[in-house]
Structures are given as C-alpha cells and as structure tokens.
C-alpha cells in the first residue's frame, strides 16, 4: 500500500511544477495512519479516560487514587521486579554478549545463541513459567526451591530468563562496534586488560548499556504472561491488577480503574526515561 503512494510522487520530480505536486512525505501516510490508529489513539484514550469518571465527565481528582496505598503497593512491586530483572539481565546478558562477540562471527555458537535469543526473548510468556515450575517448582525435577513462589526473587529469576536473551540481541551490535584498533592502541600505550575496560571499553559501551538496561526495564514492566502463569494467586504487579480490573468491574468505584493504572504505568515509564536521558547525556557527551 505504501508502494502505491510512493511511486506516484516519485514519478514526477518536483520540477514538474504545478501539474501534480504531491509532496514526497505523502509516501509515509499509510504508515503514519496505521501508527496513529493502533498506537497513538489507544494511548490517547487511556490518558483521557483515566481522567474521567465512568459516565464520561472530567474528573481530574482521579489522579489522587494513584497515591492510594493499595495501588502504590502494586507500583512498588512492579518497580522492584523490573529493577531486579533488568539489572541482572543487563549485566549477565552483557557478559554473554561479549563471549558471543569474541568468537567466530560466522560460527555455529554465535548462530545458535542468536537464534535461541530471538526465540527466548519473545517466548517467555506462559511456557516459561511452566518450564521453571517443572524444574524447580514444588515438584521440581532438579530440586524444589523453597523460594520459588517468593516475590520478587522467584519470579525475578524467571524474568531474568527472558531478559538475558533480549540483552544479547540489543547489546551485541554495540560490542561488535568496538574496534580492535582501540584495544591495540590502549595496549600499546601501556594499558592492562583491566585498564582497557576501565578507561576505554567501559566508557565506550556505557551509553549502549544504559539504553539496553532501560529497554529491559520497560520489557519487564509490560510482561504479564509469565506472572499470570506463575500460579501464585496473589497480585503483586500493576499488569495483574489491570487484568483484574478489565475482567471484573469491581475495585475502586467511580473511577476507570484500568485506565488509571495504565496511566500510572505511562508515568512510570516517563520517569525512568527522563532519568535515562539525564544519565545518557553524561555518558555520551562525545557522541555529539
């Protein structure tokens, strides 16, 4: 569909003048329309509805409900789980990515780990919870971890399982971008391996690492399938509560609960993002 629109403008260069001066950007309209309808509009609905009451009138006081201790508890739970799994996933994933990158770029190991990462990063979900259940759950084949149902440790471990592959996927290009000359130049100037990482490799990778960690955080925040199938009947995180709110219209009355919680999540992402931008600005002065 985009093709049809683009060819039309392209066939007539702008110097053709008045005849049919369709500007080049019209070629992007199909994409923009799609994103508008299925991404921007729903997000807008969330923001607007969260500030209305169920009958459709504006009710800005809804915001104060976010301070409700019960609601706050879900957000703190979400934050704990996301922080734990994203930091652990980022550090471990970076180590694995380095090991993968330092091998043969066309080798079987790299191919295997990249393919596996592609699947496992997306395939967490329901399946993953089952897998860990039979491995270390109450009737685990390996052993029975008494902390399997503990929050955030048990579920954090399971989250890390899909965070590491995601880290490998997004961080590998950054490691591949480290030029061998930098390593050799620093060695030549007298740097030990540790000094190389401390002064050269580390600072060079820092912006990418930060960005990837943020991505992992957002990824954990939106993960719902795994914790839904975790089989612990207590709700700890926001998505669980949104799910409950969507399926049963109980809870805080007089407020669009699901919309309000969703708004809270958007705010949470915005805060983390702002933090990231500030850190990034320090870490990547040299990029500009």
């Amino acid at each position: 569909m985009a093709v049809a629109a683009t060819t039309k403008t392209g066939a007539r260069p702008s110097r053709a003048g008045r005849r049919l001066a369709v500007p080049a950007w019209t070629g992007t309209v199909p994409f923009l329309a799609y994103v508008g309808v299925f991404l921007l509009w729903p997000t807008g609905i969330v923001v607007v509805d969260s500030l209305k009451n169920p009958s459709g009138a504006w009710q800005l006081s809804n915001i104060t409900e976010l301070a409700n201790p019960l609601v706050r508890g879900y957000f703190i739970g979400s934050f704990k789980l996301c922080l734990l799994s994203s930091v652990a996933g980022a550090v471990l994933g970076a180590i694995l990515a380095y090991a993968v990158a330092s091998g043969n770029p066309d080798g079987i190991v790299r191919r295997l780990y990249l393919s596996a990462s592609g699947v496992l990063a997306q395939f967490g979900g329901v399946t993953l919870a089952f897998a860990f259940l039979v491995l270390i759950g109450p009737v685990g084949l390996l052993f029975h971890a008494s902390w399997y149902y503990d929050f955030p440790w048990g579920i954090g471990l399971i989250y890390t399982y899909f965070q590491i592959p995601l880290m490998v996927l997004v961080f590998l290009p950054a490691i591949d971008g480290l030029k061998i000359q930098w390593r050799e130049a620093s060695e030549n100037l007298g740097a030990s391996a540790w000094q190389y990482w401390r002064y050269v490799g580390g600072p060079l990778l820092a912006p990418a690492f930060l960005g990837a960690t943020l991505l992992l955080f957002a990824n954990a925040l939106s993960a719902f399938a795994t914790i839904a199938a975790w089989e612990n009947q207590i709700a700890y995180v926001v998505p669980q509560q949104i799910s409950t709110a969507l399926s049963s219209e109980v809870g805080l009355s007089n407020v669009n609960v699901a919309d309000l919680l969703a708004l809270g999540m958007i705010v949470m992402v915005a805060i983390v993002m702002t933090l990231y931008v500030l850190l990034q600005r320090r870490a990547a002065r040299w990029l500009r």
């Binding site: 991404l39 609905i45 939106s222 958007i266």
Partner: peptide, 18 residues
Amino acid sequence: LLPLTIPAIVLVVGLGPI
C-alpha cells in the same frame, strides 16, 4: 521504537473501544 516503552497492557486498555 515507541511501542517498546508503552507496555502492551496499556495498549490493551486503550484498544478496548477500537
């Protein structure tokens, strides 16, 4: 890249009417 930061569950809430 925006969908990375808008949790899927937020989208669901907004997608209801659509």
